[in-house]
Every structure is written in C-alpha cells, then in structure tokens.
C-alpha cells in the first residue's frame, strides 16, 4: 500500500522520542519506590562481588587474576565487567518486555492500534534503555573513581563508548526475538529470569573467562555481552585501541547485521502466530 504522503525524518523521529519519553516516565518516575530502586540497583549489583573479592584476597590485587588476564586490580576488573553487564541486562529486560509490559499496564490495545510500525515502537524502547543505561554507566564510573580507586585509561573512554554503542545495537536483535516469543508464550518471566541468571554466570563479569569450563567458554564467546566485556576491559584497563579488538568487534557487528533483521522477522512471525491463535491481546 502506498503511504498517504511522504513522511519526513522528523516525523519518523517523533514517535520514537514520544515512546522513549513515555517509557522513561511510566517505568521509572511514576512509582516513587522505583526511583530509589533504579539508583540503588547498580550498587547492589557490584558491591557483593567486591566484598567477596576483598574477603578471599584480603586486599585489592590478585596474582592469579594477573596471570589470567594481565590485570591485577580486582575492583577495576569487576567495575568494567559490571558496567557492561548492567547495560546488557537492563536492555534484555526492557526490550523483552516491551510489549508484555503494555499488557500489564492496560495500554496494549491503544499502542497496537497506533499507525506506527513495530520497529519504530522498539526503537523508542531502545532509546529509553540507552538513556537509562547511560546514567548507570556514569553512576558506576563515579563509584569507581571516588570509592574504588579504579585504574582506568581515561583517554580510551571514547573507544569504550563506541563499544557500548555497538553493544546496544547488538542487543536490540536479542530483545526483538524474546519479545516475539513473549507475544505467544505469555507467562515467560521465568525464562527471562533464567537467561539473566545464566548470562550472569557465563559472561565474565567478575572473573576471567579462563576459569569457566571449556564448553561454557565457547558459549560465552558467542554472546555479544561477553565480547563487549572483554573489549571494554582491553581498552579501558589495558589501554588498547578499539581497532585492536578485531575479533570482538566482528562478533558485535555480526549481531547487528544478522540478529536485528532476523529478530524483527521472528517478531513479525510470532505476531502473526499470536493473531492466528487469538492470544495477541490476552493477559
């Protein structure tokens, strides 16, 4: 079907910004207790690893860690891992539940009948996730500077930002796939929680990849968050350039090129399936 008239870039952008704004307000600012949880969450995420590390090391430096990774300062090692994984998990939840949340809120029908395509809708959700995750990054970096004596190579910050940008896009395809799955299989909190737990285990957030059993290492290396954690550590702690991270960047780019179209196709397929089964609107 031909559009009624040509739509300008600005008009394309407007719904994306509106959805992002709506998501930021409803998900984060509407419920006072949530504001607290959003700010305290990242600290509760990182401190148990730091405290456990302190308990087994009695300090902050580890010879074993140095042998395995070339990095000896445990808090810096964990800080960079935590920044990347908190972004990944935040995106995983927000994107996966992008549609399901609307059912919970009772706004699914209104959004579904809007004359915008789902890709735009998900871009809005992605943008909200980017905005919120950026605050996590800034917050965790501040904790690193003021409380952990983080030993970071600041001149490589732009490299890390580029790396995080690629991660956002790589996770987008992931989110689309799970969101499509949730359209048909409604009660899938358990699945996402399980994925969250599994990724927490196999993504080398608080320990080097080398301590995982070999099969898990191989699975881990196929994940975009693992690649992003490894390349971010290389640039921000070891001071390498992003262009030296060829293998890691290639995997992230592959996710962007392959997973986004595949994820979108899968989403549209599941939407059709949900319509056929008559479960699209179901709670």
């Amino acid at each position: 079907m031909q559009p009624i008239r040509d739509i300008s870039v600005r008009e394309h952008l407007y719904p994306v910004l509106s959805i992002a704004k709506y998501e930021l307000i409803v998900s984060n600012l509407r419920y006072p207790l949530r504001i607290v949880t959003r700010f305290v969450g990242p600290l509760l995420w990182i401190f148990p690893f730091l405290l456990f590390g302190k308990a087994v090391l009695g300090g902050t430096d580890s010879a074993t860690l140095y042998e395995l990774t070339g990095i000896s300062h445990m808090p810096t090692f964990i800080l960079v891992g935590t920044i990347i994984t908190s972004i990944s998990f935040n995106m995983l939840w927000l994107m996966s539940f992008a549609i399901r949340l609307e059912s919970f809120r009772g706004t699914f029908e209104s959004i579904y009948s809007c004359p915008i395509n789902k890709f735009t809708f998900f871009m809005g959700k992605l943008l909200a996730s980017v905005a919120w995750s950026s605050m996590y990054v800034v917050g965790l970096l501040a904790v690193g500077i003021f409380f952990l004596d983080a030993q970071l190579v600041w001149s490589r910050l732009p490299d890390m930002i580029l790396d995080i940008g690629l991660l956002f896009l790589a996770m987008y395809g992931f989110g689309l796939t799970i969101s499509g799955f949730l359209l048909v299989y409604k009660e899938s909190h358990t699945l996402i929680h399980f994925l969250d737990g599994l990724f927490s285990l196999i993504v080398p957030m608080a320990y080097p990849l080398a301590v995982l059993p070999l099969p898990l290492q191989k699975v881990s290396l196929m994940l975009p968050m693992t690649r992003s954690v490894l390349s971010s550590r290389n640039v921000m702690i070891l001071g390498e350039s992003i262009f030296e991270q060829g293998g890691h960047i290639a995997v992230l780019l592959a996710y962007i090129v392959v997973a986004i179209p595949l994820g979108y196709m899968f989403y549209m397929y599941m939407e059709k399936k949900a319509k056929k089964k008559g479960v699209l609107h179901k709670y």
């Binding site: 690893f49 090391l57 608080a206 320990y207």
Partner: peptide, 20 residues
C-alpha cells in the same frame, strides 16, 4: 553459588584462602 565459586577461582586459584 557457581558465580562466586568461579570468582574465587579467578582470584585465588582454588577453594581455600588464608585471607578468608
């Protein structure tokens, strides 16, 4: 539990730690 086990292995190389 496994996450902390792997973290311990990565930091001290075993399940015993005199510092602990």
């Amino acid at each position: 539990i496994l996450t902390l086990y792997f973290q311990g292995m990565g930091l001290v190389g075993g399940t015993q730690s005199s510092e602990f």
